[in-house]
Design a protein around this nucleic acid. Structure first.
Lengths: 347, 347
DNA sequence: ATGAAAGCGCTAACAA
DNA sequence: TTGTTAGCGCTTTCAT
């Protein structure tokens, strides 16, 4: 129960009249290897368990230059999408003996960079980063130095860093196809922050779907420059004025969808009767909205888990850094926010 | 840009032909104190900035027995309530120079204890714990040892540990009063995990409100033993059979409310026309539900911030441990899930 | 089968 | 005004 009494190998070694080396070897499971007498081994082990002793990881970290620690930088841990990623990161890291040092960049690129540097300074063994911003040039240095760093969601394929992302292109294409199947032709698109990989991929999925069906692409139907609720609200209002003939809105984040819903309600446009809505990124509550929202689900839990695995892999084998980008499949969750307005076109 | 070249005081000291001590003093802002020549000071400082050098915190931690690190143990980081707490904890900790090591206990008391012990072993300077479970006897030891540890939300006042919680009693009382004001008399109550402080306080607020109005307390109207969605769903179903005459449900967590809504929808009971619902703990999406839910908002962001402040205070001044429990006020957010069914009784 | 000694990078007494 | 030394707690050569 008293844990403060025996808190170093030295103290324990004295108690058993052996050297700290021996204790260290026992406690790091190297007893066999060094043929330490079974009695000493058992005595020390039992004692350690009884007194709840663990060799000080700070000292260990200093000596071994390994801290069994992974840095996680997230734009906003209160956002359920990132919270989900974090939960998986924490859990799979733990099963591999790693702890997570969490930083929140508050959607601020400067703070993000600062956090990344802080974490390296803190000697984390590796890092998982959900970047914000359109660029992240400060990362090239870490890429060059081949530090174990994996990017999640907001990805920069050009940097040569491993990454994990949802297959945003296919997800957006599937959603747009679904809308087209339901007879929609004037489909507005509420995009996220321009220039970011997810936003580009999603818009590209949207236009690709349009082209494939021969539906003319109207740039005026693409609005927005942020993933937030406020932007969804504002841009929906504008869209409704600029293009009153739209029959559907594809909101490329769930916050965007929430904002759109709010605007639509204010403008007395019923969903889906007047306007259909498809969101991006599933969250449990979307099923409880009125109406329950059809959305493109991202496997965010898997993304978190995959990121840790990729990272651990790169930590063990720095050789295969630069390699792998992972694109995880999305799935279209059909609920009740899309109205069929005519026969589907031929498939 | 090359950060790996000069990565110790020693190297730098050699470069400038001074001792590591001098460099250490400069870099820890003690130049004045030791009257180090302004030139050396400036040279070293500039160099450190240019080369992006920070003294290794691991070595520092070993030497100083301080890691500038706070442990945070949370039952489920994917739960928006806890995610909100975490975001504040991370942010205010950062402004004070502390980093957060995050553990997720997955609502599992054994894992929680393990996490707490891991964090102490990792030499965190202090810890913030959102406990799960009805008891947490393993904590008495840390209370006795006067370790800097503050409890949040799921609180154990008897342990003599500082804590931060919402004023669950008053919140529940206010919600019940509101229901009573709207003419409800048969009010069911979906409680959380029995025996936990928040659940006890909330039920107690509920019964107190009832008594104050002379409304008889019917124990059959109190159901549930978990804060989860599933429990809300199931117990609402049971409640509807056991007490068909209820006109309102007070769901003591937002997940419970979601579950109740799902059950009600299945049973074709309209909210609020057939049954009124009040939830506990506000989340952004509650406003977007159908109907928008009336709820008792907990100041969870403030709770996170307050926890860190309390912790830092106790870290600086271990004397006032055992002292302070903080109860933060809740607020009733009135939306559209309660129907007025008669004149309010006289206040 | 076990130990002594060195050193990871840092800071704080104690010189000077 | 600056440096020397010791030591935080650990692991790892190298000896024995």
């Amino acid at each position: 129960m008293k844990s403060s009494s025996y808190n170093s190998l030295k103290l324990i070694s004295e108690k058993f009249s052996v050297s700290p080396t021996t204790v260290s070897r026992v406690l790091s499971g190297q007893a066999k290897k060094y043929r330490i007498s079974p009695e000493t081994e058992k005595a020390i082990k039992d004692f350690a368990i009884r007194e709840n002793f663990t060799p000080n990881p700070i000292a260990k970290g200093l000596r071994l230059k390994k801290t069994l620690t992974i840095g996680l930088v997230i734009p906003d841990i209160a956002n359920p999408f990132f919270a989900g990623i974090a939960s998986q990161v924490v859990n799979v890291a733990r099963t591999h003996g790693y702890s997570i040092v969490l930083c929140d960049s508050e959607e601020n690129p400067a703070l993000e960079q600062q956090s990344v540097e802080l974490l390296w300074a803190r000697q984390v063994d590796g890092m998982i980063l959900c970047a914000v911003g359109q660029t992240a040039d400060y990362l090239v240095r870490y890429a060059r130095e081949k530090r174990p760093l994996v990017l999640v969601d907001r990805v920069f394929p050009d940097l040569g860093l491993p990454y994990v992302s949802a297959d945003n292109f296919s997800g957006a294409k599937a959603a747009t196809d679904y809308l087209l199947d339901n007879g929609h032709r004037r489909i507005a698109c509420l995009q996220g922050m321009c220039g970011t990989a997810p936003s580009k991929a999603r818009v590209s999925g949207y236009t690709t779907a349009l082209h494939a069906r021969g539906v003319p692409f109207d740039p005026r139907l693409v609005a927005g420059d942020s993933f937030g609720e406020q932007s969804g609200y504002l841009d929906t209002k504008l869209l409704l004025r600029a293009a009153p003939d739209i029959t559907a809105i594809f909101a490329m984040s769930n916050l965007l969808a929430l904002g759109a819903l709010r605007a639509l309600r204010e403008e007395n446009r019923a969903v889906p009767d007047d306007i259909s809505v498809v969101a991006f990124d599933d969250q449990p509550y979307l099923a409880h909205l009125s109406p329950p929202l059809t959305t493109v689900a991202q496997p965010h839990l898997e993304m978190g888990a995959a990121a840790v695995k990729l990272l651990l892999d790169h930590m063990r084998n720095p050789a295969n850094a630069m390699s792998s980008g992972l694109l995880l499949p999305t799935s279209l969750i059909i609920r009740k926010s899309v109205r069929k307005i005519s026969q589907p076109t031929t498939q």
